[in-house]
Design a protein around this nucleic acid. Structure first.
Lengths: 152, 152
DNA sequence: AAAATATATATTGTGCACAATTAAATTTGA
DNA sequence: TCAAATTTAATTGTGCACAATATATATTTT
């Protein structure tokens, strides 16, 4: 019976740092592709959500991306300035702000379609490895989102 | 013979978003633990490096963490203000700034030791799963760091 | 040695993240 | 019914990330 290995403070042994470093490298790899579309990486994520379903509120966008209004409000204002979307209060509930794509925002969908293809090529992973890693990361995030006392 | 699946623009299918979301969740999980030590997450990473090897230059720290002086200089100044480290020009090369832990900075090492233990418990992963995921993320980062035309 | 080049850090500016607060609209309930 | 509680965005403030530039020092070239 072997004792559980003691977790260390060595940088190279940390899962958190591998995750942090990989995430920043991923964003850096997207950067030149998205720059060609006039988007930052978080802006691209917002557009992905809106291309799936237009007219969401700030709250719904935030729920999807796990971002709050402190991040989204200025980001959405920049996308509005760029002419990709519009923001207006819902008449049914004046607290809510509905985000709607402009024609330019909708048109960008077509040009964006090559981004995932380009990244897939860049990753050099099999479809299975891709899906396995993605789903492991999803379940890690789920595990970390659970309250501290959650029993599995 | 099945054709390769076409990559989509659906948010939930993106590896990048799973990575981005998991990384932010991870940082959020560290936050209360590190707050007790008076550190932010990037500051904690800098301390991990210095606890392994003191007296590194800003450049060497940056190489280890993949961060540039635009990020590190103000961060290191805040850690200096907090009394955890000192910054001084190397006499051998006045361009370089050596970062040295103060006694308080060294003392924090002991209290920090429980952070990885606490996180390991929080993750609910076997040691093998932990290592496998960590190393997959490392190799992903390596793959993304390679120049675009790299053949495997 | 002077000029050109390279290197290390700092500075500036933009854009996230996220906590905390504010303000307005809506819902709830005594 | 109307005061309290809740909900939604926006605002404010701090701290990263990162590109671009500036500045000082060191090295190389001529």
């Amino acid at each position: 019976m072997k004792a559980a290995p003691e977790p260390t403070l060595l940088l190279d042994e940390q899962l958190c740092f591998a995750l942090y470093a990989a995430s920043r490298r991923m964003t850096a790899t997207y950067r030149p592709l998205l720059e060609a579309l006039g988007l930052t990486y978080p802006q691209y994520l917002v557009m992905l959500v809106l291309w799936e379903r237009d007219g969401l509120t700030v709250r719904e966008l935030g729920a999807r991306l796990q971002l709050d209004s402190g991040t989204l409000t200025p980001l959405l204002k920049r996308l509005e300035q760029a002419g990709l979307l519009g923001r207006r209060r819902r008449q049914s509930d004046e607290r809510e702000v509905a985000i709607t794509l402009t024609q330019a925002g909708q048109n960008l969908h077509v040009r964006a379609a090559e981004v995932p293809r380009c990244m897939a090529e860049r990753l050099c992973m099999t479809a299975n490895a891709f899906i396995r890693l993605r789903d492991e990361l999803k379940s890690l995030a789920t595990q970390l989102a659970a309250p501290t006392d959650e029993r599995d």
